[in-house]
Design a protein around this nucleic acid. Structure first.
Ligand SMILES: [Mn+2]
Ligand SMILES: [Mn+2]
Ligand SMILES: [Zn+2]
Ligand SMILES: [Zn+2]
Lengths: 125, 125
DNA sequence: CCTTTAACGCAACTAAGTTGCATTAAATTT
DNA sequence: AAATTTAATGCAACTTAGTTGCGTTAAAGG
């Protein structure tokens, strides 16, 4: 059912992402907000935002879930098979625009891909 | 420094993998062993086995770390960029032999890839 | 302004994984 | 075959991400 009331907390959490394609963890979001919003609330807001297709989530490295605003996938086709990238220099986690070709294999029928890449981002290069 | 003593616990944990390319979580390993080995010990054994290149680890879906025996990567080139596959039918997590072409991009310098695929495995097809 | 109930904050909880420390048991030496 | 050394183990206590129940607050609509 998603979001039904536009509360202060909701706006604060959503605006924490800005316009960028940077992915944030709950801890990072709360840091940006000065811990003003209760962590349970942040989790629940992100759940609702995801339900409504406003953000998507994926798990990063150390068993931490990241959330990012949906940019490309506004409409019907919520294709979140796009790769995510972690810059080892600035530590940012970003959504990549690039399409991913699902590796076709004789043995496996692949329907979903979670691709987490590491390396150096454009700004740190 | 890795493993220095071939203890009963070590053999039990290592043999839990069998010859297959199936990946196991600590919980799964302990279930197979009838909880006979303390969980701290299992974590430490897996750390040492990984240090010695006998197993490799990667994070699965729900913030659970999986471990699998190293098959292809016996020698010097410990290339663990191979994909891992989760069958949604039998729930098994498997190492895939297939090579994956890293998505080259102008913006990002990719050096490492964690690829987690979902779908239907050969036996469940 | 009043009512309804979605959203909130808090405390308590779960589960994966880690750490310190005393004890046990491999491996090596006598 | 002892005695010695210290890697490995078990336990309890801890950390951190995330969840749940419940009483309270506040957004939205009449
Ligand atoms: Mn993304
Ligand atoms: Mn593997
Ligand atoms: Zn960077
Ligand atoms: Zn299967």
């Amino acid at each position: 059912m998603g979001i039904q009331r536009k509360t202060k907390s909701l706006q604060a959490v959503y605006e924490a992402f800005g316009d960028s394609n940077e992915a944030l963890s709950v801890k990072m979001i709360r840091d940006r907000l000065g811990e003003s919003v209760n962590k349970t609330t942040v989790y629940r807001l992100l759940d609702r935002l995801e339900e409504d297709g406003m953000v998507h989530s994926f798990s990063g490295e150390d068993s931490v879930t990241f959330y990012a605003r949906c940019h490309a996938c506004k409409g019907v086709s919520h294709d979140h098979n796009h790769p995510h990238f972690n810059c080892v220099s600035c530590d940012k986690v970003l959504c990549m625009e690039e399409e991913v070709v699902l590796p076709l294999s004789g043995k496996f029928k692949v329907t979903e891909a979670r691709i987490f890449l590491k390396g150096i981002c454009a700004e740190c290069a």
